[in-house]
């Protein structure tokens, strides 16, 4: 009887392990995942164009990661992208005239948000909005502008 129970226990563990692995793959690896870590505080920033900025992309200041992108959504009234940033709770001294840029790591790398602190003495708090933003540089647009300028010079 005890032997049979052992067998059932082992098989049960095996099946449970397999299902956990499947669940992990589904929720943590594939695009089904909707996980957001609940630590830190949220800031909003509006961009005319976010390029290919992804949820969970790093938010950096002076090149050091201080948070992550929490969500990216579209504001249908202003036609802007609203990005919410989750900043580590320990970084509580971001001035309210901070500048938010979307940068690309490397020529074809992942996009991230770089914050440049301003000089204000007022600090941003949970739910506040970063007013000064600059959109992502879209490579095609830059090439287009470059060609347009060249054409203007030669003509």
């Amino acid at each position: 009887m005890a032997k049979r129970r052992n067998l059932e226990l082992m098989v049960g563990t095996f099946v449970a392990l397999g299902l956990v692995a499947l669940f992990f793959l589904a929720m943590h690896v594939s695009n089904l995942s909707l996980n957001t870590s609940g630590e830190g505080y949220l800031l909003q920033a509006r961009f005319a164009n976010v390029g290919s900025l992804k949820v969970r992309a790093p938010v950096t200041m002076a090149g050091v990661r201080i948070g992550r992108v929490d969500s990216v959504r579209f504001d249908k009234d202003t036609y802007e992208a609203v990005v919410s940033l989750r900043i580590d709770a320990t970084i509580d001294s971001i001035p309210d005239d901070t500048f938010a840029n979307i940068f690309t790591s490397g020529l074809l790398g992942e996009q991230y948000i770089g914050l440049e602190p301003g000089g204000s003495t007022e600090m941003l708090r949970d739910g506040d909005e970063i007013v000064h933003t600059q959109s992502a540089l879209v490579l095609e647009q830059m090439i287009g502008q470059f060609l347009f300028q060249k054409a203007g010079e030669s003509g």
């Binding site: 589904a26 943590h28 594939s30 695009n31 992942e110």
Partner: peptide
């Protein structure tokens, strides 16, 4: 974050898993 986020963005549930 890049390790997980790029993964989650590019691995499709139906297509891949």
């Amino acid at each position: 974050g890049a390790y997980w986020s790029q993964m989650q963005a590019k691995i499709d549930f139906d297509e891949d898993l």
